[in-house]
């Protein structure tokens, strides 16, 4: 295996006296889907935000984060921008927060390609339309001219996912990206990500509170508790193989449609 796309080593994060992350280690290789599960406040989102240095200035970070071999925490602002532009895309749970409400969907979708990557707007538009179609949005030409408020939440989340893929990132950080979607829509979006992984080796760090989803969709899963990674398991083995008491507790709490025992 080549060097991982994302490699987080001994990452600690604190705000003053409050420890948010404690020596987190995780890696995502090309073509791999890695799950990050845990309850609210366990540090899942903080890990992702720290990895992209998207934290308030009051945060103090220790350890290292390497994306595509480059040390995110050590580089200057210019190189940080270049890493964010070329290598990574981040999808967050709330699509309305990610899209400018007064800009047309098409503009939001292509602006990174045009402004950061210097592509011609005709090419950017073609790529944007292709991706809208790929994420299952009907009449993409029409959607291109619409504004965010004209689309439903599920539609918008697909737009955000399409926007994240326009720049052909090598690594995708998906923070509860499909949690607000209906199960069938969620499947559509995840099928697209899986295609991208197989076609061009996209690596995905998939943050979710849905343990069934993590088990069914991820190659490997990290379990977080109070800012620490307590266990690492293969997705297929998540329910059967967990040995950490917290992981067991978490898994037992998950409601399941069980076969009748009576």
């Amino acid at each position: 295996m080549t060097a991982p796309l994302l490699e987080i080593s001994d990452l600690s994060l604190r705000y003053g006296d409050a420890k948010i992350l404690n020596r987190v280690n995780l890696a995502v290789a090309a073509g791999e889907t890695v799950g990050l599960v845990g309850e609210s406040g366990s540090g899942k989102s903080s890990t992702v935000r720290a990895a992209l240095r998207l934290l308030p200035t009051s945060a103090s970070l220790e350890g290292s984060v390497r994306i595509g071999g480059r040390d995110v925490l050590g580089v200057d602002e210019r190189e940080l921008r270049s890493i964010r532009a070329d290598e990574v895309a981040l999808i967050q749970q709330d699509p309305r927060g990610a899209l400018n409400p007064v800009r047309r969907i098409g503009d939001s979708l292509t602006e990174r390609l045009v402004r950061v990557h210097g592509e011609r707007s005709v090419d950017a538009k073609r790529r944007g339309l292709e991706l809208l179609e790929a994420v299952g949005i009907s009449r993409p030409e029409h959607r291109f001219r619409q504004y965010p408020h004209e689309l439903s939440g599920g539609m918008l989340q697909r737009v955000v996912i399409a926007a994240a893929l326009t720049t052909r990132p090598k690594l995708l950080l998906a923070d509860e990206a499909t949690s607000a979607l209906d199960v069938t829509t969620q499947a559509e979006v995840l099928a697209i990500l899986r295609d991208q992984q197989q076609e061009r080796g996209l690596g995905v760090l998939f943050i979710t509170h849905d343990l069934h989803l993590a088990a069914a969709y991820c190659d490997r899963v990290y379990v977080m508790l109070r800012g620490e990674v307590v266990e690492e398991l293969s997705g297929a083995n998540l329910f059967a193989g967990a040995s950490d008491p917290y992981t067991r507790l978490l898994l037992e709490a998950v409601p399941t449609i069980r076969e009748e025992t009576t």
């Binding site: 003053g16 409050a18 609210s40 406040g41 540090g43 903080s46 308030p56 509170h209």
Partner: peptide, 14 residues
């Protein structure tokens, strides 16, 4: 999803 710990801490500190 409820607010995560970091946000709460920032708010409190604020």
């Amino acid at each position: 999803m409820t607010t995560n710990t970091a946000d709460v801490l920032i708010a409190r500190k604020g």
